[in-house]
């Protein structure tokens, strides 16, 4: 992998940037590429198209679209390039071994991992899936970046694209707890610091409303996608684990006080709640 023009635009040596002046045709090319990727058609874009399409993706601010795009890009890594791409994500990779912190930072799982004295041994197949996962993670990590610097024209095109996006799943579960004003706000996602308690409250609302566990998992998944990424993303797995716990303890009650203690229920919301907690 030569450093001047890497084949894959997501590698750290890639020089792709949006540039000071945005050309309409470039944005349109990037928008077309992004739509293709969201429909599962993967190919390697130029670094410029890639940079612009990520900006559009960021402007869309849609968890589902982020997931689809990252999957599509991960699939573009050819088998013959796996080792070279691996070195970009796992710089200390050598002779089939990766130091544990690098392995975990790249999104590696310790489930069934061959771990010894701080090194994880990987075979060719494991390295391939690890590299793809690392590409996904790198793209998804960008979700926490600032949005206020996105150029106006990019935001406009993103809004046009939004109407054509394939429909993601949406929360359909209903119930007296799920319809509480504070829970309705939760469903839009929470910032870092209140994501965990938010997930707990949401799962309790689901269990109290008699929502099936499968349906609750969809609610939790969507919640995790909508949560702000902050310093670390709140993964759907974390959200599902919370629901698993709550469904094992179905007698846990929804607590207005807990909601208030964790800044999840501002007074103005409680004022218009039919429960009117004191």
């Amino acid at each position: 992998m030569q450093s001047e023009s890497p084949k894959y635009p997501f590698l750290s040596a890639s020089k792709g940037s949006v540039g000071a002046e945005l050309k309409e045709d470039e944005i349109e090319r990037a928008a077309a590429f992004l739509m293709d990727a969201l429909r599962g058609k993967a190919h390697v874009p130029s670094s410029k198209v890639y940079a612009l399409s990520r900006l559009l993706l960021h402007a869309l601010d849609d968890g589902w679209a982020y997931g689809k795009f990252s999957d599509a890009m991960a699939k573009t890594v050819e088998d013959k390039d796996t080792e070279a791409v691996a070195l970009d994500f796992f710089p200390s990779y050598s002779h089939g071994k990766i130091p544990l912190p690098e392995y975990l930072k790249g999104g590696g799982s310790l489930s069934g991992a061959s771990l010894d004295k701080g090194f994880v041994s990987v075979d060719a197949g494991e390295l391939r899936s690890l590299v793809r996962n690392a590409v996904r993670k790198k793209i998804l990590d960008f979700r926490s970046a600032r949005r206020d610097l996105i150029p106006k024209r990019v935001l406009e095109i993103a809004e046009e694209m939004r109407k054509k996006l394939p429909k993601p799943s949406h929360v359909t579960a209903r119930g007296k707890n799920l319809e509480l004003p504070c829970v309705q706000v939760l469903l839009k996602g929470e910032p870092e610091g209140s994501r965990y308690y938010g997930a707990m409250a949401l799962a309790i609302a689901c269990v109290r409303d008699g929502v099936s566990k499968d349906a609750a998992m969809e609610v939790m998944e969507e919640y995790a996608n909508r949560c702000a990424h902050g310093t670390h993303p709140f993964s759907s797995r974390e959200a599902r684990d919370v629901a698993e716990w709550v469904y094992r303890h179905p007698n846990v009650r929804f607590s207005c006080r807990r909601m208030q203690d964790n800044n999840l229920a501002p007074t103005e919301l409680c004022d218009r709640c039919r429960w009117k907690p004191r």
Binding site: P99, P101, E102, L104, S111, A113, S235, E238
Partner: peptide, 23 residues
Amino acid sequence: AVRQLGSDARREIVEYASEPRGE
């Protein structure tokens, strides 16, 4: 090296010491 590990990485570590994962 460990300071920058996120919650997912930390979960991997604590779960590894808590149970065999995977088949």
